[in-house]
Write a protein that binds this DNA or RNA. Structure first.
Lengths: 240, 240
DNA sequence: CGAGGGTTTGAAGTGCATCAAATAGTGTGG
DNA sequence: CCACACTATTTGATGCACTTCAAACCCTCG
């Protein structure tokens, strides 16, 4: 498959571009570039001039900001299928955070100017962007809430619930998508705290932990533990 | 002035409606209602069906969510000129939080269906909503960051910086817009913590506190203290 | 003046961070 | 396939920041 065809495919899978005509897809694809990155590679840094936005096609990308003394705050860690850097159109053309690969990552880079034109010219596109943004916003709202109402173990449990799948035995299986210390930073805690909080969670819910795989008899053990300190009702995995 | 005229005036002042033609303003005004509320009065509660959105014309409105046991997380506290409940169009027609008056408050209530129509029919409107939402989002992002990187005193200082005005003597004057305990909840801390953190801030920066009024020799004392633990550079009061 | 909220202060407890060190896990080259 | 090097994770000990509960204080307003 040619690179262009590949790019078209990737773009076509984006919910944001679902309502777009083929003509736009062609235009985007013509100017897109696939970038392969290895762990730690930086795509752009905070407040740099924003020329491109990115669509993740493989791996996980960490968004973060850091203070002068190097302490960093993780904004989010995004999986394949998500975009980043696209909000720069609203932020004086500057990236609002830094972005780096957490492992072997593949992204599609697209010029941000196209986005802007598209918003102005195609109302359906603006609408679909509005929807995407609203969804993300309500997720971030919840994030703030969790940081104030939940303790470390509950945040971990809540994070797991969003990843949980029920297997054929009726057991709940959870696979952490990346390193524990990365999960820790995503949840705003130290790796040491994560480790200790996880063992507390383990003894509270009877879950079995082996590396990044967690097995649990049923959801209830976990929801009873976590969702007490949350204002939403389980099931709440409206990530889509 | 008639109520309708009054309502039109209020709507006209909303950045969100700046680009809208008079015809829409008329339509909105015809269906708007002014509501006066006293302290503690609830406009709507979390997950209730969303029929109206609101524009604050006087006073402050607290947005919050609460867990089953009554613990509450303050999402935001909004001043006159801001809207709330408007994001429900993207949240299955449910309010994503509860809203109550923090004091004597006046709001304009408008049917949410109009918003939805407007987005679909007028691209400029969708764009302006997109911009509003993006701005708010970057604010909330910063909020998350502050909760992880700043301690209580720094959060208070940062909150003050956004309210600071320089007076004719070159002094910096800050007036807390509402009760200290409300500020505390807005910043995600207990009133007691606020009180103690404020005195620490006082001795660290040499500020003078009398009730809700704070006077400071210059910005630098405060920025040096707070902005160390932030990834943005002062001045950062891009609230608009 | 007195009632009631808001605010401050004190004492004690909890949770998370930090620093340091041990252990488990992973991938590499021999 | 093993040993080594390196990283991720766990564990321990200690300290600090914030919370909690309790009580005093202050301020305002009827």
């Amino acid at each position: 498959m040619s690179e262009i065809e590949n790019i078209k495919l990737v773009i076509g899978e984006q919910p944001l571009f679902h309502e777009c005509r083929g003509e736009l897809i062609d235009r985007l694809a013509a100017r897109g570039r696939i970038i392969k990155a290895t762990k730690g590679q930086v795509f752009f840094i905070h407040s740099e001039e924003a020329l491109n936005f990115y669509v993740i096609t493989k791996g996980w990308v960490k968004l973060f900001r850091e203070t002068l003394d190097g302490t960093q705050a993780v904004v989010d860690i995004l999986p394949a299928g998500h975009m980043f850097g696209e909000t720069s159109i609203f932020e004086n053309e500057e990236y609002p955070y830094s972005a780096e690969a957490t492992e072997q990552v593949e992204v599609l880079s697209l010029p941000i100017s196209i986005l802007k034109d598209e918003i102005n010219e195609h109302p359906e596109f603006a609408r679909s962007m509005l929807k995407t943004m609203a969804r993300y916003r309500s997720q971030q709202d919840k994030e703030i809430e969790h940081r104030t109402l939940q303790n470390a173990s509950q945040r971990i449990g809540c994070f797991m619930l969003k990843l949980a799948e029920q297997n054929s035995n009726g057991e709940v299986v959870i696979n952490l998508p990346y390193d524990k210390s990365l999960v820790a930073s995503r949840l705003g805690m130290q790796p040491e705290t994560f480790s200790r909080a996880l063992s507390k969670l383990k003894s509270a819910t009877g879950m079995k932990v082996r590396g990044g795989t967690i097995i649990l008899e049923n959801f209830e053990n976990l929801t009873a533990y976590c969702c007490v300190a949350c204002t939403s009702h389980f099931p709440c995995k409206e990530i889509a």
